[in-house]
Design a protein around this nucleic acid. Structure first.
Length: 287
DNA sequence: CGTCCCACCTGATTGC
DNA sequence: TGCAATCAGGTGGGAC
């Protein structure tokens, strides 16, 4: 479901609402594949800890929790500090709710906070994953599971961006979706970015000109920033931490608009399958 | 290693 | 109306 702008919106929303709160209790559903760490490990790591921050890395939400006073150097992990990693998959939600609000179906984890509110992880399709990472565990500690992956699309330099696609024979759309190249770009924003840059999704990534890659990076960053500003895209049931829908779906130029006129030239938007995903483009504006 | 394709799930929508 | 087929914002593993 959620791509970079939706995950960013949720992480920021949860951060603003729960930072500094102590987690006093945890409940989990027991649906095995939802949990990459054992439920016992999750409960032990988080019970009694204080939420220090909630942020986005790629499409993963990283909730950092600690015991004792916050460190002066925020960069360095302290002993006892843990990271709760939440990947929302296609249909995952992370909600901050009052306890009296009815628990939605398909709730798989509930973190009860000291003031009574609850952080709830809800995921009908169960493609989402929850895990614990301990930055200080082991001698060196393994690299965090969300690191060593692709670059952040919002901060990548032009030089790095161009280098990503060198020599790749795969279609540019598939390359944009590849999380080991760029993390956070999903199906909606790949299509929208390619439309903005005037590039057909089928084009071989390695054969794009420097000029086209300049436009693509610009277009991708503009689309992501705009979407974050509007709280993400609510295509079916996406909502933020407070249950509010986003508004960027109203600005989609191609995604979900098959058969409708292109906003620039009026040609019918076409839909094909590429890299196993529904892919939308304007056959005239995109070369 | 790069790339392709399917499996993993439930629910909403489409089509017969 | 009813039921089956199709599709959905993502990823990870196996095959080639």
């Amino acid at each position: 479901m959620p791509e970079l702008p939706e995950v960013e919106t949720i992480a920021n929303g949860v951060h603003a609402r729960v930072q500094g709160q102590q987690i006093v209790a945890i409940w989990t559903s027991g649906k095995p594949q939802t949990f990459k760490s054992t439920e016992t490990e999750i409960a032990e790591a988080l019970t009694g800890a204080i939420v220090e921050s909630v942020r986005r890395v790629g499409k993963t939400i990283v909730l950092t929790a600690g015991r004792g006073p916050a460190s002066r150097n925020e960069q360095k992990p302290r002993p006892g500090q843990v990271e709760f990693l939440i990947h929302l998959g296609m249909t995952g939600r992370l909600l901050v709710s009052q306890p009296e609000v009815t628990l939605p179906p398909h709730t798989h984890a509930v973190l009860t906070l000291a003031d009574g509110r609850e952080i709830r992880f809800v995921d009908p399709r169960r493609f989402g994953r929850l895990s614990i990472y301990k930055p200080t565990s082991g001698k060196q500690g393994p690299e965090a599971p969300y690191k060593g992956q692709g670059c952040e699309p919002l901060t990548i330099s032009l030089k790095e961006f161009i280098a990503l696609f060198q020599g790749r024979r795969t279609p540019i759309k598939a390359a944009l979706l590849n999380q080991s190249l760029l993390q956070g770009v999903g199906n909606i924003y790949a299509d929208e970015a390619l439309f903005g840059a005037g590039i057909r999704p089928q084009r071989q990534a390695g054969r794009l000109t420097r000029d086209e890659l300049v436009r693509l990076r610009k277009s991708l960053q503009a689309v992501l920033r705009h979407a974050i500003k509007l709280g993400g895209s609510s295509v079916s049931d996406y909502v933020d931490a407070e249950g509010r829908r986003g508004f960027f779906q109203l600005r989609h130029k191609v995604y979900g608009r098959a058969g409708q006129p292109c906003t620039v030239c009026g040609t019918k938007i076409r839909k094909i399958t590429l890299a196993g995903r529904g892919t939308h483009f304007c056959p005239v504006c995109q070369k």
